[in-house]
């Protein structure tokens, strides 16, 4: 086999290999995990995060605008502090409400952002003050029973 034919084959191999990678990155996957250069990080304390996981989506009006970056427990306030990165293209008012929601009845949990009307916008490292915890099914049922008993 002469060297040129061999080179041609190797070139072909590299091209279709690169095409396969491109296919995987564009058609199969998506760049939903925004890289840190064009995101900003917000924090939100919750009384209860339910089953929220790191890398869960952050949505506003149903559109994914960010990802949960870190979840930790604050021993001073006994609350969970969720840090999440938000795409820098989107700015949210200071009085935005963060809620932990569930997609479908049994689906994955995500953070929902509901913008308020403040003129000041949240910036890097800011904390979302108004939050609403996850709905825990046992608590809900317990409350329902309690209300019924009270009637």
């Amino acid at each position: 086999m002469s060297r040129t034919v061999l080179d041609l084959w190797v070139g072909f191999f590299v091209v279709i290999g690169a095409a396969a990678l491109l296919f995987l990155s564009l058609k199969v996957g998506s760049f939903s995990g925004f890289n840190s250069s064009n995101t900003y990080v917000l924090q939100a304390p919750f009384d209860n995060i339910g089953g929220l996981k790191v890398r869960a989506p952050v949505k506003s009006a149903g559109v994914v605008v960010g990802r949960v970056a870190e979840i930790r427990f604050d021993p001073a306030t006994y609350r969970a502090v969720v840090s999440f990165s938000v795409d820098a293209r989107y700015a949210f008012p200071r009085d935005t409400i963060a809620t932990i929601l569930t997609s479908g009845l049994l689906g994955e949990q995500y953070v929902g952002l509901e913008p308020g009307g403040d003129v000041d916008m949240l910036g890097e490292g800011d904390t979302v003050m108004i939050t609403q915890s996850a709905v825990v099914l046992e608590k809900l049922i317990g409350q329902f029973m309690f209300d019924r008993a009270a009637e």
Partner: peptide
């Protein structure tokens, strides 16, 4: 596309 993340999975 929604479930597969480029950096994380691919």
């Amino acid at each position: 596309q929604a479930a597969v993340d480029f950096r994380y999975d691919v």
